[in-house]
C-alpha cells in the first residue's frame, strides 16, 4: 500500500474542504477501499475519514426515511422502520457480505464500492480498461462467470456488486450529494454510469463530491417487497443474479411494480420497460414471463455467463409470483 495522509472529517463542510484536494478520497469503513489500496488498484495520496459524519436514520416529512451516509449496513438492516416498510432493503443488506463486514461498511461506501472482477483486481498481471483506460479487457475472453449481461460494453463487462443498491433502486432511493459546487440530489438508479468506452468513470459524482445521505421515499402503501439472491454458495458470496421487487396488486390488477436486478449489470439495474408492461396486467405467469422477456431483451453474454439470462429470467418470474401470491 502506498503511504497516504489520513485525517478525520469533523463536519460535512470540513470533509468537503479536505476532499477537494488532489488524489484525495473519502474513506468510509474501508471494507472495499482498503482492500483495493492493498492491491495497488487505488492509490490515494490522502484519505478523509467520513465515518464520523451523520449516520442517523430519521423519518422525513413526506413519510420516507433519511439515512445518513455513515450509517452502517447493519444499522440500516436492523432499523425497525426499514424492516417494516422496506423489507426488501433489509433482506438485500443481510444477504450481502458477512455480519462483520456489514457492521463496518457504511451506506455511502456500499454505494461506491467497486467491481469484484478478478482482472480488475490483478494490477500486475492483467489488462483492465477500468484501471488503465484503453489497454484492453482480459475478462471479455477470460473467466467471466460473474460478469454482466446488461448495460455492458465492448470495453468492460464488470458488474456492480452491491446487494443493498439493488433494493435501493427498487425503492426509488435518492442520493443526496454535497461538494465544492453545492448540494444536489441524484436518483440512485442514475448515480452509476454505464461503461461505454470510459469504464473508468463509474458514477456521476463530481470531483470532491460526497454522498451525505440516502433518502427513501415513502413506501407504496399495501405493496409487498422482497429480495432474492442466487449465488454459488449458500451464504457469503456475491450474487450471480439477484432481484429486488416491489409489487402492489389492486382489484386483481397490478397497480404498481418496480423491479431492480443485481449481478448482471455495471449498476443496479431498473427494468422500467418491463415494469410499464406489467402495470394494469393480471398478475400471473403469463405477465411475469413477458416482463422478464422484456427485462432481458438486451442481454449479451460471454461463454462464462451464458447461463445468466435464463437464470435471471426464472428468478424474476419466481420473485413476482412470490409477491403476487403474498398479495392475494
Amino acid at each position: 500500500m502506498r503511504p497516504f495522509a489520513y485525517s478525520k472529517a469533523t463536519s460535512e463542510p470540513d470533509a468537503i474542504a479536505r476532499g477537494g484536494e488532489t488524489a484525495t478520497k473519502f474513506l468510509g469503513a474501508g471494507t472495499n477501499l482498503v482492500d483495493l489500496m492493498r492491491e495497488g488498484v487505488e492509490v490515494p495520496a490522502a484519505l478523509v475519514d467520513v465515518t464520523g459524519l451523520s449516520g442517523s436514520i430519521e423519518e422525513t416529512d413526506n413519510g420516507g426515511l433519511m439515512i445518513g451516509a455513515a450509517a452502517s449496513n447493519t444499522a440500516v438492516a436492523e432499523s425497525a422502520a426499514v424492516r417494516e416498510r422496506y423489507p426488501a432493503l433489509t433482506r438485500a443488506i443481510l444477504s450481502g457480505a458477512s455480519a462483520q463486514i456489514r457492521n463496518m461498511a457504511t451506506v455511502g461506501g456500499n454505494i461506491l464500492q467497486r467491481t469484484r472482477c478478478t482482472y480488475f483486481y490483478d494490477l500486475e498481471g492483467s489488462r483492465c480498461n477500468k484501471r488503465r483506460p484503453g489497454e484492453g479487457c482480459d475478462a471479455i475472453d477470460g473467466f467471466n462467470r460473474g460478469h454482466g449481461i446488461l448495460g455492458v460494453s465492448q470495453d468492460c463487462i464488470a458488474t456492480h456488486p452491491s446487494d443493498m443498491c439493488v433494493a435501493l433502486a427498487a425503492f426509488d432511493a435518492l442520493v443526496h450529494l454535497a461538494g465544492p459546487g453545492g448540494r444536489r440530489i441524484v436518483p440512485l438508479a442514475d448515480l452509476h454510469r454505464l461503461p461505454g468506452d470510459t469504464p473508468d468513470v463509474e458514477t456521476v459524482l463530481a470531483p470532491g463530491e460526497l454522498i451525505t445521505s440516502v433518502e427513501l421515499p415513502a413506501a407504496p402503501v399495501d405493496a409487498r417487497s422482497t429480495y432474492r439472491k442466487v449465488r454459488d454458495r449458500a451464504s457469503y458470496a456475491f450474487a450471480l443474479v439477484s432481484v429486488a421487487a416491489v409489487l402492489r396488486v389492486t382489484d386483481g390488477r397490478i397497480a404498481e411494480v418496480r423491479i431492480a436486478l443485481g449481478g448482471v449489470a455495471p449498476k443496479p439495474w431498473r427494468t422500467r420497460e418491463a415494469e410499464d408492461a406489467l402495470v394494469g396486467a393480471t398478475p400471473g405467469e403469463t405477465a411475469f414471463v413477458r416482463a422478464a422477456d422484456i427485462a432481458l431483451s438486451g442481454a449479451t453474454t460471454r461463454p462464462g455467463n451464458a447461463f445468466k439470462p435464463e437464470l435471471m429470467h426464472r428468478t424474476i418470474v419466481a420473485v413476482l409470483q412470490d409477491l403476487a401470491g403474498a398479495s392475494e
Partner: peptide, 10 residues
C-alpha cells in the same frame, strides 16, 4: 473471496 469453499450455511 473468489475461490469458493463452503461457508457454515453450506
Amino acid at each position: 473471496a473468489a475461490y469458493y469453499m463452503p461457508a457454515h450455511l453450506d
